[in-house]
């Protein structure tokens, strides 16, 4: 969904929920696409030796999904200028990871809208990621 061009974002606007059914393939693909070859992100036997029940998602994948969550909503003309995340419970295959968020602030600077977003990504175990982000958008006309 792309932000409607007829109106700028407003504080409290929800972002469309992003639901990710997490599989081992998805975790391994994200790790390798981000050049993170730590075996805990692709080798279940190694993860078990480290005391984890399975492979788990790497942090570069988290920031990747955060940026997708933001620009799926804001559209291709959005620029992500800041992202700050706090890491919570790990994500394993079989989990469903759900990103939710809302507009927390809006301002106009020059010919751009500056939008602050507060968001979280959670599974049944709790918050995996909580964070805030700043995007700029060419000011709607």
């Amino acid at each position: 969904m792309t932000r409607p061009r007829s109106a700028g974002p407003a504080v409290g606007d929800p972002l469309p929920t992003l639901t990710i059914p997490v599989t081992a393939t998805l975790i391994a693909a994200g790790a390798i696409a981000t050049r993170d070859f730590m075996p805990v992100h692709h080798d279940r036997d190694y993860a078990a030796e480290q005391g984890a029940p399975d492979i788990f998602m790497n942090i570069l994948s988290d920031t990747g999904y955060c940026s997708r969550f933001l620009t799926d909503w804001a559209g291709p003309d959005a620029m992500v200028t800041r992202l700050a995340i706090r890491l919570g419970v790990p994500v394993f295959p079989g989990h469903t990871l759900v990103y939710t968020g809302e507009v927390a602030g809006c301002s106009v600077q020059g010919d751009e809208d500056v939008v602050e977003v507060a968001f979280r990504a959670a599974t049944d175990l709790g918050d995996h990621v909580t964070g805030t982000a700043t995007l700029t958008l060419p000011h709607h006309r």
Binding site: A29, I32, A33, T34, G64, Y65, D72, P76
Partner: peptide, 12 residues
């Protein structure tokens, strides 16, 4: 490769 891994369809 990255965009496919995260199914990110942003055309830019």
């Amino acid at each position: 490769h990255w965009a496919a891994a995260f199914d990110d369809r942003n055309p830019v």
